[in-house]
Design a protein around this nucleic acid. Structure first.
Lengths: 230, 230
DNA sequence: CCGACAATTATTGTCGGACAATCTGACGAG
DNA sequence: CTCGTCAGATTGTCCGACAATAATTGTCGG
């Protein structure tokens, strides 16, 4: 049933060709700029200016804005354009509250038989990112950290919930990018996560959820202390 | 402090003016057409055709498509346009699985002290919609039904999770619109929901979650039987 | 000095047209 | 039957234009 030329043996390293639209490529470029902290929360994004620097049409930039706006990374102000989303204290409450619901549901699934390998791997990546210096600043380390949390949600085996979790953490990365210089006792953080994983592995649902709740609460206050706005 | 003309006494019913962009108005128009079942799953949406019938530019329609695509109501097929999203059996699994996570979390909040008034009201609206014939077909009844379920999520007091729930039910409405003619024993349905609310009110977390799980599972098979695709 | 008001400027929202790239389906050659 | 070729349709992207709206500046009477 499978066609004879489905996979050719000797050509494994052919450069993969970008078959995405320029709109999505512009959105991706803006996304990395946002996560890298090149653009600060509240800063307006001008259509013409970006169109020129990217070498694309204004309409293309507008479509990219639409994508990022629905992702929550930028905010539209009618007739005034879009700006990098600035998180308020209420936003943080909502984000961490939503994460607690999703991640604790994932933990419950983990304590009752789901395959924990992805979580273990995510934690390994996270630990490695913390240990290695990394030329990209703390960006990779926070990415890996949040990816560990998302891997908990992934235990539910539900792509839609995982997408929601990704959206939540993306918004957080936005707020963190500007102040991510501070990274005290990252090792302790990793240890925290190891403890959480251990509880999940042991099947201790109560304990694991409690540990997650504690961890998220601590993270929230830590983030809130650095992110301004009200 | 208030200006003298802030509110004029005798002109309470001045038609409120749409201050939304035409893009969003086009998206809204398409949304209602989708929910009303005027457009069938899989059916392609042509940019020029719609632009002409709406009397707007093609770029405006494209932006509206972008909005609907991120909501999941339509699906982009690169270089081939957008089409009404058709739900597969796997999609139904994901949607109902995600709903179970969110709504059961809401139920848990409800059994531990959240104010149940919004849920009670949503149920009243639902019951009323089922009793009254309604010129708009079953559209209003299903809307009210799903809105009841969303009101459970609203108990969490988290706008982001509520938005996710809305997105999930919107996708469902899409699939249901085409086959919503069948509506057997809608009264029994309402009774089911009354039972759920009673359990929540009594603070019976276990029982309420179990009842919700049972209800969603039944709904899924009922929907899956009518919605084609694999 | 200050607030209200008018004028200017910058920017967005929307339009229309244009063109290349891509997909689809039909057709004909081997 | 498979493979290239071709024409038609549709999308992706660009450009230029304009009115509507918001932000800024300038003016003036108190």
């Amino acid at each position: 049933m499978s066609p004879p030329f489905a996979t050719v043996k000797g050509m494994a390293d052919v450069p993969v060709i970008d078959r995405t639209s320029t709109t999505l490529r512009v959105a991706e470029a803006l996304r990395t700029m946002l996560f890298a902290g090149d653009l600060h929360p509240g800063e307006p994004l001008r259509e013409v200016s970006l169109a020129e620097s990217f070498g694309v049409a204004r309409s293309t930039v507008r479509e990219a804005f639409q994508v990022l706006a629905t992702e929550g990374l930028v905010t539209r102000y009618p007739n005034r354009g879009v700006a990098v989303t600035a998180l308020s204290a209420d936003d943080l409450d909502e984000i961490f509250g939503a994460r607690l619901v999703l991640e604790s549901a994932g933990v419950r699934a983990g304590t009752s038989g789901s395959d924990l390998k992805p979580v273990v791997e995510a934690l390994a990546v996270y630990a490695e990112a913390v240990d290695s210096p990394g030329a990209d600043g703390q960006a990779e380390s926070t990415r890996a950290h949040l990816e560990f949390h998302n891997s908990l949600v992934a235990l539910l085996g539900n792509a839609r919930l995982l997408a929601s979790a990704h959206a939540l953490t993306a918004d957080l990365r936005l707020g963190l990018a500007s102040v991510e210089r501070v990274r005290r006792n990252a090792r302790d953080q990793v240890a925290d996560h190891r403890k959480l994983l251990r509880l999940v592995r042991a099947g201790d649902e109560r304990g694991a959820v409690a540990e997650l709740e504690r961890h998220l609460a601590a993270a929230k206050t830590s983030v809130a202390a650095r992110v301004v706005g009200g």
